[in-house]
Amino acid sequence: MAMTATSTLSQFSSYMPLSFSKKLPRNRVFIRAMSENSSTSVSTQQEPTPLVAPLDFKAPEPKRFEVRPDMRGEVLGAALPLIFRFATGVFVSGYSFSFVPKDEIPPGQYAMLEVNGYKLKETSKANLSPRPEKPIEIYEFESCPFCRKVREIVAILDIDVLFYPCPRNGPNFRPKVVEIGGKQQFPYMVDPNTDTSMYESDDIIRYLVGQYGDGNVPFTLSLGFLTTLTAGFGMLARSGKGSKYTPAKLPPKPLKLWAYEGSPFCKLVREVLVELELPHVQISCARGSPKRQILYDKTGHFQAPYLEDPNTGIGMFESAEIIEYLKTTYALQ
């Protein structure tokens, strides 16, 4: 075990970012999240492939609090970061909860639990801070501890992000980071709302809380090397997952994933999205997020992850089936 930890941490050290922050040069960027009134598209050297849903595909019914038997070990391993990271990324900033008589929550309003005539009411301060008009763009990959730190603050701030996965040997977005930023280093953030771009996970975190939060970095993200160390230890059970490219079709439009960093089910889906190098807009919906109600209104149910694929028209719950769908639809092997 000690040898494994040493080897893993040595690998993590190779991702240690160098300081870099600048205004985004407009004439060099050719990936951009469009406004809500426009369709978001993917522009890369690889030509997007026309896509259709798998033959006879039927979206599964959502099953709350159930884990498919063959996925139990996977989910357990993906849940390990919750321990090492003290559930960072599970709750939105200012999260609070209370049990209220069920009559106080009208029909059609989302509530996670109902016990003995009482419902769980969850609130947060997510809407008290400025919201980005366009999604923040982040180039990263799942198994990088520095990237995880940034994904955690994204969940805490409840902001939506256009993720460009950058697995090893990925042909599309790793080269783009070099082109627009000058070096291959992750995470790399682009904020199209302020024309700001930067490397360095801690700098990105400080920028995001200053721009879209209350200016205060959460304690569990303010511990320097200890934060990175615990993020790395939390990934030991999933070592290597979400880091290496699997040849895949490039979608014409980014997928949409309702998810949050603290969920092991969401992590399993994101590993596959990264390995297939599938760009996706993540609609953040950690505990306390008002966007849980939006998904509830949209589908009659809340459960994360929920995948929407604008390229095939598919919308679906259930992480195991989402993974199978992604591999069947996009993987070339």
Rank of each mutant, 00 (worst) to 15 (best):
L9K: 07
Q11I: 15
S13I: 07
P17G: 06
L18T: 10
K22E: 13
K22I: 06
K23W: 01
N27L: 11
F30P: 00
I31F: 14
R32I: 12
A33W: 04
S39V: 15
S41K: 09
Q45Y: 06
E47Y: 02
E47Q: 15
P48A: 04
P54S: 04
D56L: 10
D56P: 00
A59P: 15
F65R: 07
P69R: 01
E74G: 02
G77Y: 03
S96L: 04
F97K: 13
F97I: 12
P101G: 00
P101K: 00
K102A: 12
K121W: 07
E122G: 14
E122H: 04
T123M: 08
K125N: 10
I136D: 14
E137N: 08
E142H: 03
C144R: 02
R151S: 14
V154S: 08
D158I: 08
N169E: 12
N169Q: 09
G170D: 10
P171Q: 03
R174F: 04
V177N: 10
G182H: 01
P187C: 07
P187D: 06
T194D: 15
T194P: 10
S197G: 13
I204F: 04
I205Y: 00
R206M: 03
R206H: 11
L208H: 03
G210T: 04
G215C: 06
N216Y: 03
V217P: 15
S222P: 09
A231K: 02
F233Y: 10
F233R: 02
G240H: 01
K244C: 12
P247D: 08
A259K: 03
F265G: 01
L268N: 14
L273K: 05
V274S: 00
H280S: 11
H280I: 06
A286T: 12
G288N: 01
G288V: 05
R292L: 11
Q293C: 00
I294C: 13
D297E: 09
T299C: 05
F302H: 08
Q303V: 04
E308Y: 06
T312R: 07
M316W: 00
A320D: 15
A320W: 02
